[in-house]
Amino acid sequence: MKTPGKTRTEQILRVMYVLSWIAFIGLLVKTGAIMTSFGVSLYNPEASHNLYKGLSLYDLREHSFWYYTQVVSLMIAFSGLKAYIFYLVIQALSKVNLTNPFTMEVAVLLEKISYVLIGIWAVALLYNAQTEWFAKRQIINLDHWSTEGFFLMAGLVFIISQIFKRGVEIQAENELTV
């Protein structure tokens, strides 16, 4: 059922705004939980048995505190960057004006999102390379992170940001001709 005065696009954007807030808060909680668990494990090695949702890095910590710190740092970076993406999405959605949709602010935010997605892709590649290195040396077996989607998304969001920039130029030209 349609809300009076609200277009379907406005409703979809409102739902996406709320979902983005939920994802942002969830990823912040996850990042904070990993950071807190890591902090506790600095003083109590037993805490590395259940770092986050049953993930046990106790054997890795016992093998090498440096390797353990590297893995946890990559996990924090991965989760934190994903939270930052949703923060940028929230900012972009709050700045969208359907009567004048193409703004340089939104275009810049979209471009920034694409760069952060490349960062997430790079962190995932580093993590996967490290887990391969650990596996070859039979130190610990960790799951790999998917990387393909982040690189593809970064490219698509970058293209959309460039379309938005061109839209800003066209809007400015149209305003000058009126």
Score class of each variant (00 low, 15 high):
residue 123 V to W: 00
residue 97 N to H: 12
residue 127 Y to M: 04
residue 126 L to N: 03
residue 127 Y to I: 04
residue 85 I to H: 06
residue 127 Y to L: 04
residue 83 A to M: 12
residue 103 T to A: 06
residue 130 Q to C: 04
residue 81 L to C: 12
residue 123 V to Y: 00
residue 118 I to F: 10
residue 135 A to M: 10
residue 116 V to T: 15
residue 122 A to H: 02
residue 100 N to T: 13
residue 96 V to C: 03
residue 81 L to T: 14
residue 99 T to L: 13
residue 90 I to D: 02
residue 90 I to R: 08
residue 96 V to D: 03
residue 80 G to C: 09
residue 80 G to D: 06
residue 128 N to H: 05
residue 96 V to A: 05
residue 130 Q to T: 11
residue 103 T to H: 06
residue 88 L to W: 02
residue 107 A to V: 03
residue 108 V to H: 06
residue 135 A to P: 00
residue 100 N to G: 09
residue 123 V to Q: 01
residue 94 S to P: 00
residue 122 A to I: 13
residue 126 L to G: 05
residue 102 F to D: 03
residue 86 F to L: 08
residue 108 V to D: 08
residue 128 N to V: 08
residue 80 G to V: 13
residue 126 L to H: 04
residue 128 N to I: 09
residue 125 L to W: 01
residue 114 S to E: 08
residue 124 A to P: 00
residue 103 T to G: 06
residue 111 E to Q: 12
residue 114 S to R: 08
residue 86 F to E: 05
residue 84 Y to L: 15
residue 98 L to H: 08
residue 112 K to H: 10
residue 115 Y to S: 15
residue 106 V to W: 00
residue 98 L to K: 07
residue 109 L to A: 06
residue 86 F to D: 03
residue 115 Y to D: 10
residue 129 A to M: 06
residue 98 L to Y: 07
residue 112 K to Y: 03
residue 103 T to Y: 03
residue 93 L to C: 09
residue 124 A to N: 03
residue 111 E to K: 15
residue 98 L to D: 04
residue 118 I to V: 15
residue 115 Y to L: 14
residue 118 I to W: 07
residue 115 Y to K: 15
residue 102 F to Q: 07
